[in-house]
Amino acid sequence: MSDTPKEITRGHMAVFQDPLPLVEKPFAAYAKKLGITEDETIELLRHYLSTGVIRRLAGVLKHDRAGFVVNAMVAMVIPPGECDAAGAVLAEFPFITHCYRRTAYPDWPYTMYAMVHAKSRREFDGDIERIRSSVAPQEMAVLRSVKEYRKTAFRMG
């Protein structure tokens, strides 16, 4: 299937941005809003999953309530030419959920960012040590989460 025009895709995402209801036939809610059958709705989801417009259809946990009580953004200075190799190594760690290369500044020189989630301080310290020994960043800042003011999924207005 070819890519759907952007305006049509946006109309579909306005419906798919809602969470799936926890009922026997959860896709019926989307189908009703889209004015199509449940089978067609499932096909449409399959299409967007295959094109990557929808990354995943999945349960999203609340980290701290699910037992991940120590969370941090780890910023690292990795030389530009070594970022891809380091990124590949970091992506393999199960305790890292997100990893990006980002813009650096003279007074904030970090180029690599990894989100780390651990069930205890002890486990967390071990995770940080594994990052340090595997990618050997020139500098590393461990920015532990202190307070969550907001965590939500984006919604179109």
Binding site: T9, M13, D18, L20, L57, A58, G59, V60, K62
Partner: peptide, 19 residues
């Protein structure tokens, strides 16, 4: 979900793909 452990089950959308 009521206990706040599971936030929700949802399609995770790549918003950059729609502008």
């Amino acid at each position: 979900t009521a206990q706040g452990i599971l936030r929700e089950i949802r399609p995770v959308i790549s918003w950059n793909r729609v502008g």
